[in-house]
Design a protein around this nucleic acid. Structure first.
Length: 492
RNA sequence: GAGUGCGUAGCUCAGCUGGUAGAGCACCUGACUUUUAAUCAGGUGGCCCUGGGUUCGAAUCCCAGCGCGCUCACCA
């Protein structure tokens, strides 16, 4: 190597040269297979009682990524998914091919090592190498070992680097998977059927949200990426399935912040002959099960605050909470005009056509949500903000709905599902009016769904859980981008 | 979408009221069978995010743009 230069690009060049040299010597730097016999964890377990400065004859094969090289290759730190394995190489005993391989090694390479088990003088369990095999030559330098990778942009765009450098990132992603698995098993154990419904919707429905629009060429038809699976899952209930759930992606064309990603994971459950109170119990079980699966306890700490996830959670009506935090009793307010006046009195912005229900909801959002740290079911929402929910059995202004709040975040949304087709059509018509008045989040008329209801849907309880939010709570991550492996990023 | 902070070596960061850039790690050369962020000596490495402007002179000041963070708005 004549000239030695050292930009990132040139560090790569040096490694490419090594790769060429390896190939010239007939070494495949990207072999088809290598089968380790042990992991870092299995060795630590098996040889826990091996004394210092002792070597035994057991031959093992381990594999992982080179993270540090000390003493010209005498000590190499290799990491696999279970942790560190130190590789010890005695130059006196090393074969020529091993010495040659040491010369090719760089931090970041993935290698396999065959050797005997040894604990060094300093007490580090090691593999005394007999043979080192290149499993994947790394051509690019890793971030600095001590400070790691902190640049958020790089962490999100090159998540694999974040995972290599920051174990807690990997841990969070594993917890995410375990949470979803735990929830799935809980629901399957209750006899619910996991189903899949369309992501491409002809009509936007199931939630008040702005959709992404795409186009099908052969049909020459615009389609919406779903904002919610609700209307299809209910059709399956009409069809006679007693209970279904779906865990999958929803897409909403809205802002991005620490709690919102344009695509996010929603779980929805529908169960016949259930009402919203059954869904409250179900949600408590989901939270408890998921929390135990990853934390082993129901006490968690978030933003320095202790939160107890043990159910049952208190049930507080929206109007009741508004009364508690503002002193205003919306249930005693009869007209829209009075409701608007009450909202304005509380400095909550409303327009001249905001109705009683929207006023109540707006006041709740502004004045109450921030207080809801410990889990609480906020129940009995106003009818006008709930187009898919059955009227409350005791009050026609309300519906049988709840949203559970934890850490001020809305974690779920659940109803006694509206099954009356005449009522449903009227609610859709209200939505259409709102839509024509400029509310592009309002629902569209879904005739096909109304037709399904006209055939008869049994009383049904439904529950939608924001899985990402739940994972944020259960892993104590304040940003949704830290619990989604590949969050949506601007084009660079 | 608005406000605000940030953008300097592969990574983590310094860089004063303007005077053409520095450290640690990584990398290269050498020493050392000794280690745990190994150590020691020597070295390489920069479109200072991009484009304009002010100035004799800009990483630094001004304007615009791009990207990221945070807060707010919309929302789960």
């Amino acid at each position: 190597m004549a000239e030695v230069t050292n930009t990132g690009h040139e560090q790569r060049q040096i490694r490419v040269e090594k790769l060429k040299n390896m190939e010239a010597k007939g070494i495949n730097a990207y072999p088809q297979i290598y089968r380790p016999t042990d992991t870092s964890a299995s060795l630590r377990e098996k040889y826990a009682s091996l004394p210092n400065d002792t070597q035994i004859d057991d031959v093992v094969k381990v594999a992982g990524r080179v993270r540090a090289v000390r003493n010209s290759g005498m000590f190499i730190d290799v990491y696999d998914a279970t942790g560190k394995i130190q590789i010890y190489t005695s130059l006196e005993q090393a074969t020529e091919s091993m010495k040659e391989m040491l010369g090719f090694l760089d931090i970041g390479d993935i290698i396999g090592v065959e050797g005997t088990v040894r604990r060094t003088k300093r007490g580090e369990l090691s593999v005394a190498s007999r043979q080192i095999t290149m499993l994947a030559k790394s051509l690019l330098p890793l971030p600095e070992k001590f400070h790691g990778l902190t640049d958020t942009d790089t962490k999100y765009r090159q998540r694999y680097l974040d995972m290599i450098m920051n174990p807690e990132t990997t841990e969070t992603l594993i917890k995410r998977s375990n949470i979803i698995t735990a929830i799935r098993q809980l629901l399957l154990g209750k006899g619910l059927l996991e189903v899949e419904t369309p992501l491409l919707h002809v009509i936007k429905g199931g939630a008040t949200a702005k959709p992404f629009i795409t186009h099908h060429n052969a049909l020459d038809m615009d389609l919406f990426l779903r904002v919610a699976p609700e209307l299809y899952l209910k059709r399956l209930i009409v069809g006679g399935l007693p209970g279904v759930f779906e865990i999958g992606r929803n897409f909403r064309n809205e802002g991005i912040d620490t709690r919102h990603n344009p695509e996010f994971t929603m779980m929805e459950v529908y169960r016949q002959y259930n009402d919203y109170t059954d869904m409250m119990t179900l949600f408590e079980q989901i939270v408890e099960t998921a929390c135990m699966a990853v934390n082993g306890s129901l006490e968690i700490e978030l933003n320095g605050r202790k939160i107890n996830l043990k159910g049952p959670y208190p049930r507080r009506s929206m109007a009741d909470l508004v009364k508690e935090y503002t002193g205003v009793d919306f249930m005693s307010i009869q007209t829209d005009e009075e409701a608007r006046a009450a909202a304005k009195e509380l400095h909550v912005a409303v327009t001249d056509d905001t109705d009683w229900g929207h006023c109540l909801a707006a006041v709740f959002e502004e004045k109450c949500e921030d207080h809801l740290i410990q889990p609480v079911h906020v129940i009995d929402h106003p009818k006008s903000i709930s187009p898919l929910t059955k009227e409350h059995r005791n009050d026609p202004r309300l519906v049988e709905r709840f949203e559970t709040f934890i850490n001020t975040w809305e974690m779920c949304n659940a109803y006694s599902e509206l099954t009356n087709p005449i009522d449903q059509r009227a609610r859709f018509e209200e939505q259409v009016k709102a839509r024509e008045a400029g509310d592009d989040e309002a629902d569209m008329m879904d005739e096909d769904f109304v037709t399904a209801l006209e055939h008869g849907m049994p009383p049904t309880g439904g529950l939608g859980v924001g899985i990402d939010r739940l994972i944020m709570v259960l892993t104590s991550n304040p940003s949704i981008r830290d619990i989604i492996a590949f969050p949506t990023m601007r084009k660079k």
